[in-house]
Amino acid sequence: MEPITFASALANLSSMAPEIWQACRETALMLGIGLFTAILLGGPLGIILYLSQPGQLFANRVVNGVLGWLVNLVRSFPFIILMVSLVPLTRVLVGSTIGPIAAAVPLSFAAIPYFARLVEQTLREIPRGVVEAAEAMGASPLQIIVKVLLNEARSGLISSLTILTISFLSYSAVAGVVGGGGIGDLAIRYGYYRFQTDVMVAMVLLLVVIVQIIQFAGNRLAAHLDKR
């Protein structure tokens, strides 16, 4: 094998630009679907977990216990095992088990309880007195959730979403290798199976840059929203 020079690597990578672009789109799709479901289902789940705690608005031992147990159950599966066990469900939902959309099924499944816990924890930081003040003013439960809990926790929620995004960028690489495609998959296919180390390094660098950008944007937005 020829030694890799900077020039040869650059030439190689630029010839692969369409494939790299395709991989980026696949990663974005997997991540996008995963995050969307996490927010749509994990968010409300986190709110219910919080509100059903003892001393909260809808304190309910049974609901809190059962949901907490379910969340822990899903979260205790190593991701790769969760993915394999969800193959039948993925086939039913998507009609196929390969491609970014199929990979998004286990990603979403893992992201829902993960985000739910993050939301629950973020909401716990709101002083009880603030919620009580809203109750004393005659706020309805929905008004308390939207105008008090979510609004007071908004900065923490953005930070949680940032953590979720970065964790699941890495999960999406695992999902990609098992037929989802994406940046991680490209790195493995070329870097590991075809010994094109330059492609692997470039893909890892790309992920590093993406993570830095997400974290930076998340921090900025969180700081902007935080008026405490």
């Binding site: 007195g129 603030v130 009580e132 003013m137 005659g138 309805s140 935080d226 008026k227 405490r228």
Partner: peptide
């Protein structure tokens, strides 16, 4: 009805309990 009745009863707290993001 209780929520409506509470709108007739303002409350002030030792720790203020203001909404920090408003």
């Amino acid at each position: 009805e209780l929520r409506r009745a509470r709108q007739n009863l303002g409350m002030v707290f030792q720790q203020f309990n203001l909404l920090a993001n408003r």
